[in-house]
């Protein structure tokens, strides 16, 4: 995965995380993870998981935890 692709995924995941973090009625991490599962194709999910395995640079807290959840960790 190239650097710029990872950057893009990080930016998108952060955007999603920000929305769910603002909700008061549901769990932000679960919401973000669910969104990634429902709308990101497997390749993109694999990409962001790989990025987290390499340190997850640039990812905010909520999406980071969501990706870990996706990865089953």
């Amino acid at each position: 995965m190239s650097h710029s692709t990872a950057d893009k995924l990080v930016k998108m995941a952060n955007q999603i995380g920000m929305f769910f973090a603002a909700q008061r009625h549901s769990d932000a991490v679960a919401g973000t993870a669910e969104h990634l599962k429902k709308f990101w194709d497997p390749r993109m999910r694999a990409g962001i998981i790989a990025h987290v395995e390499h340190g997850g640079e640039g990812l905010d807290k909520v999406p980071l935890e969501a990706v870990l959840k996706l990865a089953g960790k």
Partner: peptide, 18 residues
Amino acid sequence: NEPGLRIPNMFDAAIAGE
């Protein structure tokens, strides 16, 4: 049973050769 690529994702994946 897995969601597919959306248009912008297709472009990104194409540039990545996938």
